[in-house]
Design a protein around this nucleic acid. Structure first.
Length: 489
RNA sequence: GGCGACAUAGCCAAGUGGUAAGGCAGAGGUCUGCAAAACCUCCAUCCCCCGGUUCGAAUCCGGGUGUCGCCUCCA
């Protein structure tokens, strides 16, 4: 069995065959650091983080590189309005990026690259393209001559003639420096007051697309295994990357191109220009009870290539779903010791999980098929529900009807597979001393309630029950007049 | 206008030829003074519409309809 993934380049699912057996080189287009990340970014990086985790679990040595675009007009504009420097703005939102991603349990890349730290590579690449006749300088700018590259359009499936027809109203004829409306800037001459770097073409800064081509070459190789990013980057960004890199090296830039679908709001793409975006931090500020894992789960419940509609209802459903999974994940720490599991066993044995079980196989079959996370999640829910049931039976009746060994295996499987999807219950925040009522006070109130019930003064007994409930104490009335209680978390 | 994607229950969603996973919500039952919790059970004769291929189609083919994305910065 092998991993199959959808390749935008061929528009088909293809078996993953890496350049070097057992190793996968990945480059993922990162963010332009001029604002906080929104839910579209959340989806993108949750999806690729999950792909990365899965490939690792499947035994691949994964090397994952991601960039920060820290030279850009939008950053510059922001710096201008704030009367500060481009670097200050970039640093701030780079830091914010890391905070947001950590919250969503997204693993850090093996290497991060920055436009500001890639200028040598960028200039070398531009020089090479100029030398080979793919680029031409024009008044301090340097442009890529799109028509020189025969394969232009192969990723996005469009031809220049089509582009011309459709874009006729949108192409700006005032850009006279370009030989052709579809040529794009590799280097932009400095304007007064803007940060700039010296270059053979005069002071200036790099265009957007060139940084990725230069970074991939510098950090990875001429040809990498997988290049990923948002589907809105297919054209022109990734198309231009291909044109730049392949013209320079004569080799394919990436064997596989993967693209995630957009996050929609009310059926429309969430985007800056539409102004309909919610930042990750806004979401959690306005929904204090929302778990970051619920957002992650929400994003993994759909196929990564399809658009997903973000609604309050869907989010609430995901929160409830996460609750179910979390109860299963917490079964181990909660009940394991009572069932005779040794804490050290839990971690050690999970690491060498038996992969031949039906659960793991079902999970793997789903995930092998272009990362079918929704299919994989079904396995997690089956396990979590079984464990939740067992836990409830222990709490409510004193014992489960499944043997300890089976429960342990189920729990370890659940934890392991959840980890592959980046879903973690996280440490239980147990307060030092439980707040509210003391055990003695609770026992006293229960005693009073029992007396009231015996006297059939149900108004009084219900009042006590409400009082306890308000203090976070839930009651379980059992047959025979026995009442048990537990603190609700 | 060009290119592309998608359409499955109240909602989300998997499933690409063999007779509809999973989640959320909901319903009934047991228990209870009533609840809560828990446990048990149920919840798409059918996959946008119309044709076709096939012993058999949500799945393949043809034709519609609808929604969305890209073609400008975008994850």
């Amino acid at each position: 069995m092998t991993v199959v993934l959808y390749n935008t380049l061929s528009r088909r699912k293809e078996p993953l065959e890496t350049l070097e057996p057992g190793k996968v080189n990945i480059y993922c287009c990162g963010v332009t650091v001029y604002d906080h990340c929104h839910l579209g970014h959340a989806r993108c990086y949750v999806v690729w983080d999950t792909v990365r985790r899965y490939l690792q679990w499947r035994g691949y040595g994964v090397y994952y590189v991601q960039n920060f675009t820290d030279i850009d007009d939008k950053i510059l504009n922001r710096a201008r309005t704030e009367n500060t420097s481009m670097q200050t703005v970039a640093d701030r939102y780079t830091a914010a990026y890391f905070e947001d991603m950590a919250r969503l349990n997204i693993l850090e890349a093996d290497a991060y690259t920055y436009a500001t730290k890639t200028l040598d590579g960028i200039q070398r690449l531009i020089g090479e393209l100029e030398h080979k006749g793919y680029a031409y300088p024009a008044d301090g700018d340097v442009y890529y001559a799109v028509r020189k590259f025969a394969g232009y359009g192969k990723l996005s499936g469009r031809r220049l003639e089509d582009l011309q027809a459709g874009a006729s109203g949108r192409v700006n004829p005032s850009e006279t420096l370009k030989h052709d409306p579809f040529d794009f800037a590799l280097w932009k001459a400095a304007k007064p007051g803007e940060p700039s770097w010296s270059s053979p073409w005069g002071p200036g800064r790099p265009g957007w697309h060139i940084e990725c081509s230069a970074m991939i070459r510098e950090q990875l190789a001429d040809t990498i295994d997988i290049h990923m990013g948002g589907s809105d980057l297919i054209f022109p960004h990734h198309e231009n990357e291909i044109a730049q890199s392949e013209a320079a090296t004569g080799k394919p830039l990436a064997r596989y191109w993967m693209h995630n679908g957009m996050v929609n709001v009310g059926g429309e793409k969430m985007s800056k220009s539409l102004g309909n975006f919610t930042t990750i931090r806004q979401l959690f500020e306005t929904n204090p009870g929302l778990s970051p894992m619920a957002l992650r789960l929400f994003l993994l419940q759909g196929q990564y290539r399809k658009p997903v509609d973000f609604t309050a209802v869907a989010l609430a459903a995901a929160q409830n779903s996460w609750h179910t999974l979390r109860e299963g994940l917490e079964f181990g720490p909660q009940f394991g010791p009572n069932l005779g599991w040794q804490p050290q066993d839990l971690a050690a044995e999970a690491a060498v999980l038996d992969r031949e079980t039906a659960s793991v196989q079902t999970f793997q079959v789903a995930m092998d098929d272009d990362f079918n996370t929704a299919g994989g999640l079904a396995v997690l829910f089956d396990l979590a529900k079984d464990l939740r049931r067992a836990g409830n039976l222990i709490t409510h009746t004193g014992g489960a009807d499944t043997d300890s060994e089976t429960l342990k295996n189920q729990w370890q499987t659940l934890v392991t597979l959840a980890q592959v999807l980046g879903l973690q219950a996280g440490p239980k925040h147990q307060p030092e001393s439980p707040p509210g009522l003391s055990v003695a006070a609770i026992e006293e109130l229960l005693d009073q309630r029992q007396q009231a019930r015996a006297a059939k003064d149900f108004a009084a007994s219900d009042r006590i029950r409400d009082q306890l409930q308000a203090g976070g104490i839930a009651l379980i009335d059992k047959p025979g007049g026995v009442t048990e209680w537990y603190r609700q978390s």
